[in-house]
Design a protein around this nucleic acid. Sequence first.
DNA 1: TTCTATTTGATTGTCGACAATCGATGGCTG
DNA 2: CAGCCATCGATTGTCGACAATCAAATAGAA
Lengths: 219, 219
Amino acid sequence: MAESQTLAEKVFSELSTAIVRGELAPGEKLSEQALVTRYGGSRAPIREAIQKLEARNLVVRVPHAGARVVSLSLEELRDIYEVRLELESMACRLAAERMTDEEVADLESLLAEHARSIEADQGLSYYQKSGNLDFHYRIIEGSKNGRLHQMLCGDLYHIIRMYRYRTSTSTERPLLALKEHQRIVEAIKGRDPQLAELLMRRHIQASLTNLETRLAHEA
Amino acid sequence: MAESQTLAEKVFSELSTAIVRGELAPGEKLSEQALVTRYGGSRAPIREAIQKLEARNLVVRVPHAGARVVSLSLEELRDIYEVRLELESMACRLAAERMTDEEVADLESLLAEHARSIEADQGLSYYQKSGNLDFHYRIIEGSKNGRLHQMLCGDLYHIIRMYRYRTSTSTERPLLALKEHQRIVEAIKGRDPQLAELLMRRHIQASLTNLETRLAHEA
DNA sequence: TTCTATTTGATTGTCGACAATCGATGGCTG
DNA sequence: CAGCCATCGATTGTCGACAATCAAATAGAA
């Protein structure tokens, strides 16, 4: 059933996950010939896949010189986080205004589930990976702004996740994060856009400083 | 000297300006064959150009069905403006923090020039077109955030300009806009990020409501 | 007549080969 | 020996043709 997608899209999605997972190191060159022998097909769909990756800012392509996996400097990473901080705070404010009561209830039950899985000391890794993303994702969707959703989920998140893989080994602070999440949902439930925005801003800023210290230690 | 650019890029830039200028109507189909006969070359570079246009959200491509010039609904246009409002206000805040004194001085002289050209009742159209863009562009650059610059200038502005062409005939309010610009620069010069952000937010919001009423009248 | 199934036409996706360009290796000159 | 230039190899950009897919027009049955 999933065979209706074009070959270029399949290669694109495989390459995309490979880059995000770190299987292709930042700065590594993507030779069209090599990709042909690996993924099969001809050069045309591979080129198209590479262009799609370029559109998502996962690779950089320079004419007549080929494509390389993007390699961000600390300044560029900070720039991205700065933009994400602003956009996601905005999304949270809009979500407090526009989410339906049902969506808010669903969000609450999601957090309750997270609390249980943490309390049982199970699935800590789950919460770090998917759970955290689920929470943020729902709020972004709750903003009811398609372009905002596209920019955050389509463009920024892939890059952020790509750089998280290298640094996400250190012990997260799931309990603290969960509490922050609960307060945010509370603000949304109370239909307090300004408070919701402020709490989300602080929440992301915390994770930003967290990442910065880790990157500083690494470098 | 400018012949080192690849054919695909040339077609891309020509198509890009054609779309922004409205020579290609929204929703119009872009047949690869037709583009080949018009711009020359083969289908390969044309396909690449179309994909680049898709990356900038100027066309939408559905597999096996071809590419069409993007046609935004009122909701989508509102979404875009909502995001632009937030990002450019953010840029203004950052500019107040990070612009060098020299850049601020240049911005002041630019506004003085605008004031002269308006006072002389000359170049009103110039001010509407390039002048306004120049002002916003410099502030975005002053934010010293490359990603922010890319998102605003690379992705959002083309679409916004595309829809301005159809509605920019009504008499703008250049005098009022100039005054708002001057106040913004004053805030930046005073190194007051919060005020600068607030003023820019109001400034863009005004132009947004302006556009909305015009679109409503048109539809 | 109207709805459905089919065929047809055109458009897009894919392929393999050729030409243009860039980076590297090696030789020549000072 | 250092530095510049030419040649070579490899990679990318471009081309024309073929195969797969979709949309419309046509024919047939209820």
